[in-house]
Amino acid sequence: MSGYWQEIFVLVGINFIVVLGVSILTGFTKLFSFGNAGFMSIGAYTSAILTTRFNVPFLLAVLAGAILAGLVGYGLGSLTLGLKGDYFLITTLGFGECVRVLFEYIQPVTGGAGGLSGITHYTDFTIVAISVVVAFIFAWTLIHSKYGRNLTAIREQEVAADAVGINTFKNKLLAFVVSAVYAGWAGGLYAHHLTYLEPKIFNLAKSAELTITTVIGGLGSLTGSFLGTCVVTLLPEVFRDLSTYRMLLYGIAVVVIITVKPSGLYGYKEFSITKIIRWFKNLSKRTSGTVEKGA
């Protein structure tokens, strides 16, 4: 694979990991959050500071960033997940902005608004590939287990979920923490890919972009999230001229999708080989059926 395509793969992979988290949170649990760029930022800065200042091994630093993001997610979620939709949304938005302002303010540690540079380029193809595989399998098995069923139950009908004994608060917290850990993890990889960090990389627009990606790909589908990530990451690479209009197009796309076809590219279903095989079998049956009739 050429360096260019490796680079693209790394970008898609990192974005996919964050989007998986947002997908679990928004697509499967129906929690709309604006804090995910904030969690990414926590993972990115934590790992970058650990590797540059304290010579901590790269993988350990990324892990530390992901865990810290998860802990902060646990704390924040415990405080705010009891709040209703809009109130919850505004607290996550506030959280994201606060993290940014805070990182700008504590200049001695983070380099402030001027940025943090000199991060070693550790993130390579292999580590991203392994991360994506692990993140995807964990997300897939989580969704296809009682945990995932509890989350979709909350999405579909929260009162009924409660009525069948699901601790909705605890399950929402699970989704929130998982999304925070994924964001922190991706943030760590991103920092050591970019080799340079600025608090404003992880602003509100970044959080919006993550949700936009999930919606374009299709809510309630990990496959959809993958497609969404590919589209959102690759389009501006393929059509360089479009980059000015990039966010404008995504904005319009989201409005159109959510009003006209809320399932996006591939929402509320998953790609599965067995289903495809079954579909082909049925197809051959149908065609052979018509042949018999014809004969």
Binding site: F32, A208, I212, Y245, L248, G251, V254, P262
Partner: peptide, 26 residues
């Protein structure tokens, strides 16, 4: 009119906001 969940209205608002901001930018 479709009876979609309220979250869809919030997502639409986000899309509209992104559209306006980037439209103005262009």
């Amino acid at each position: 009119d479709k009876g979609s969940p309220t979250m869809f209205l919030m997502i639409a608002a986000m899309g509209i906001s992104t559209t306006y901001q980037n439209g103005a930018m262009v």
